[in-house]
Nucleic acid binder design. Structure first.
Lengths: 256, 256
DNA sequence: GCACTGTTTTCCGCCCTGTGGAATTATCCA
DNA sequence: TGGATAATTCCACAGGGCGGAAAACAGTGC
């Protein structure tokens, strides 16, 4: 572990942590590094544009180059959703024995874009690429729950809800009510709402700007996937989705 | 300038540059650093999460921590639009003697959110906080020109164009035509389209995702701001806006 | 205007840490 | 199985980073 680099990263992270500029002495306090050292490292960071100094206040803050490099990096194949989701899907299917899917938000629909199939003979099979309305599947409802209030209302305004099965939540009222529950729990269930005999549990994935862009789901025939079992798997899916969010650069605490 | 840090940043940037993972030897070639050195620096970057190694291919790519830290940093007051725009506005007003404004996109309207007033006795005066439609002012048209095609069409669909003056471009056709011109030039003019006797010139500001979020404008009475003078100021406004974009983390070349 | 306090910035000799060539190990093809 | 390519690990040297302390610089109260 290269010492100076390691310390410089400490300094960089200290700069990025707060929303206000900080002085050298504050950074010294936070990092525990000697003052002279902090100054030297900061100068180098400034020279490369990773930090910047306000000439009036003499305080330091994160620099534009940091954002620039991160923006380029985010274009890397490494951060493509499907690549990130693959291990999560494998994990879910291994753990549960049921088919898991990555659903991506596209307009007002969800698109099945990655799948790991269950080893069971009787299993869920949805075509990758298939598009479905958001309100009637687990992954869709997970994403709706991640919407901001006005975004959700706009969606409800322009969408005609239609009951695919007797259990479909086909009124704005019932949907709104359910989504508040989803927000609290962190996962959404679809208990035969799209198709009779199919139950699924899902959780939302957020990008680095805190926008809900996708969802993970596990689905199976109700013979194996009872409502109870599905709900029990909720935390598992939630955890897997949260891991994906973090890898996308999402920061849970303060996403301003 | 701390050598090891400096080199580590070279390595980091080399990782972030391409959209595919790279091997150590490729980085050695790109940076000119010795192989052992690159490996050592990379290991440190990996340990901190700024780089990541694919265990199958053994190739390296940018790490999630980079995005995470950048996401936090972007919340810094330092990158708030109005803070970035202030010097630009000062520069424009100093250079031209006319009032300059920062307009921020909000829904389908532009909001005047920062202003530096002209020293002239006869001058433009718009209230900060005022909201105006996009299609009839310079800054609004600059932002429309920065919209993607489908985004623009959706806007035109849901907006009723209304002629404020005889010169207002109040048809979808005339607007579309004008906007293609704006895209080529990089600035938009408003020659008495909102109010008779007022002319303004404006350019769009893009955020780090390449989305058009705001615009800078210079406006003045037609007695001083002739159409010709305004057009002559176009490159100046364009340049100022481009500087703001870069400080927001916008990367002109490959913004994927 | 002047001393005082809490900063940031600069300096410099010691020595720890990063350096990079070369040896070692892993991996991929044929 | 063996040969080529690339990734790791190793180690002795010395150059670069370290950090204490001094100097320069605001900002504040008298």
């Amino acid at each position: 572990m290269v010492q100076s680099l390691n310390r410089a990263l400490d300094v960089l992270e200290a700069l990025a942590a707060g929303s206000d500029d900080v002085g050298i002495s504050q950074i010294t306090a936070r990092t525990g590094l000697p003052l002279g050292t902090v100054h030297r490292l900061l100068s180098s960071l400034v020279a490369r544009g990773y930090a910047a100094q306000d000439l009036e206040t003499r305080l330091y803050g994160p620099g534009p180059r940091l954002l620039e490099v991160a923006a380029r990096a985010s274009a890397s194949r490494r951060f493509s959703l499907s690549r990130i989701a693959r291990p999560a899907l494998l994990g879910l299917t291994t753990a549960t024995g049921e088919t898991s899917n990555l659903l991506v938000l596209n307009g007002d629909e969800a698109v099945y874009s990655e799948q790991v199939a269950s080893p069971h003979l009787v299993r869920m099979f949805t075509e990758v690429g298939q598009r479905v309305p958001l309100y009637c599947i687990g992954g869709g409802k997970a994403m709706l729950a991640g919407f901001a209030d006005d975004q959700l209302e706009a969606y409800l305004d322009r969408t005609t809800l239609c009951a695919f099965t007797p259990k479909t939540k086909a009124t704005a009222e019932s949907l709104r009510h359910e989504l508040t529950g989803v927000r609290e729990q962190g996962f959404a269930i679809d208990d035969e709402e799209r198709e009779v005999g199919v139950c699924c549990i899902a959780a939302p994935i957020f990008d680095r700007l805190g926008r809900c862009v996708a969802a993970l789901s596990i689905s199976g025939p109700t013979t194996r996937m009872s409502r109870e079992r599905a709900l029990g798997l909720g935390p598992l899916v939630h955890e897997a989705a949260a891991t994906c969010s973090i890898q996308l650069g999402f920061h849970p605490a303060e996403s301003g």
